[in-house]
């Protein structure tokens, strides 16, 4: 099967307008959503929106075939940088967020020199080590990183007050919409990158890096590019987190948190753009609605582990494969031999 993410640039106008219509509905639903939620659920919705960006940016890196264990630490780099810029240097918060993203990207650019000498398992371990070193720096240097306790009282997004309209970003609803705008814009950029030749080249490196090299692809440069872009958006997610929660510490960006990102990505599936998003949304809903409702949320790691194992066993291509599977199943039930003939042709 050709990767659907690569092989379908030729959407007809009908399909495209259908896709647009779906997007309109999606955004309408997302706009109404917070008003249907309780205050604490609204807070969770904000974190969910931020995590969507975290896991989607992670997927961009996985397109080249490399899986990192340092992505959450990179998110932390953005969080610490944006928080410190605002606290220490008085940089206005929206700008600090952007610079934080750039710092995360810059960190990735530097790390790519040792890390992309390795591939596969060694890259995984190398990225873990690199992440631990960064966390050690945060813990060790109380000035400016605040040591193990981290940073507190991080500046919030400044209120918008035009007299006519005033928005206070302490309100989860308002921050939800802010995060939604930033994350949607980021996802749009990530989507465009993947659909462009850059995305094709990332896939090419994943499947046959030697062949890609032989026709002129500088695989080191493109692996670095994927890592830098992914890290930029992880850094943005980190900044969004820091200025919402108001505190960051090294434990928040530990490998435990990274495991959640991996579980979201694996359970959702990484073959499509929407797979990891599906993963984080479904697992968060399960977590917050079901586990919390049943009072089982202390067993979260256990249950996440069970979900991971079950999905690897019974849904190896992730939640994203459910739709096509369901469609194929319906077609088989409806069309019977006709559908089988269509497959053979």
């Amino acid at each position: 099967m050709p990767d659907p993410a690569v092989a379908a640039p030729a959407d007809g106008p009908v399909r495209r307008s259908f896709g647009r219509l779906r997007l309109v509905f999606l955004f309408a639903a997302l706009a109404v959503l917070p008003y249907l939620l309780s205050y604490s659920q609204q807070e969770i919705a904000v974190l969910l929106v931020i995590n969507v960006l975290l896991v989607s940016s992670y997927r961009l890196l996985t397109l080249t075939g490399e899986w990192s264990l340092g992505h959450v630490v990179i998110m932390g780099v953005g969080a610490y940088a944006s928080a410190l810029l605002a606290k220490r240097l008085g940089v206005p918060v929206p700008l600090s967020l952007l610079i934080g993203g750039c710092m995360a990207a810059g960190t990735a650019a530097i790390l790519s020199f040792p890390l992309f000498r390795m591939k596969g398992f060694y890259f995984l371990i190398g990225s873990f080590a690199a992440g631990e070193i960064i966390r050690l720096i945060w813990k060790r240097f109380t000035d400016p990183f605040g040591g193990p306790k981290g940073l507190k009282r991080i500046d919030a997004f400044p209120d918008i007050d035009t007299g006519f309209l005033s928005i206070d970003f302490y309100e989860p609803v308002n921050y939800y919409f802010l995060a939604l705008v930033v994350v949607s814009a980021s996802l749009f950029v990530l989507y465009r990158i993947e659909r462009s030749r850059i995305g094709l080249t990332f896939h090419a490196i994943h499947w046959q890096d030697r062949l890609a090299e032989s026709v002129g692809v500088d695989t080191f440069r493109y692996r670095t590019l994927a890592f830098v872009i992914a890290s930029f958006f992880a850094g943005i997610a980190g900044g969004l987190y820091a200025h919402y929660v108001g505190a960051v510490n090294p434990t928040r960006f530990s490998v435990d948190q990274m495991v959640y990102v991996l579980v979201w990505a694996i359970v959702g599936g990484t073959a499509t753009f929407h797979g990891p998003i599906l993963g984080v949304v479904v697992l968060t809903v399960i977590n917050e609605m079901v586990l919390r409702g049943l009072g089982l949320d202390t067993a979260r790691p256990l249950i996440y582990g069970a979900i991971l194992i079950l999905s690897v066993l019974y849904l190896p291509d992730g939640l994203e494969s459910l739709g096509p599977r369901l469609r194929a199943w319906l077609q088989r039930r409806r069309g019977g031999p006709a559908a089988a003939g269509g497959e053979a042709a």
Binding site: M1, P2, D3, V6, L200, A204, Q208, L211, V215
Partner: peptide, 13 residues
């Protein structure tokens, strides 16, 4: 080859 790609996408790479 890029086994997962279409024939055209191979040549495009």
């Amino acid at each position: 080859l890029f086994q997962e790609f279409s024939v055209l996408d191979n040549a495009r790479v």
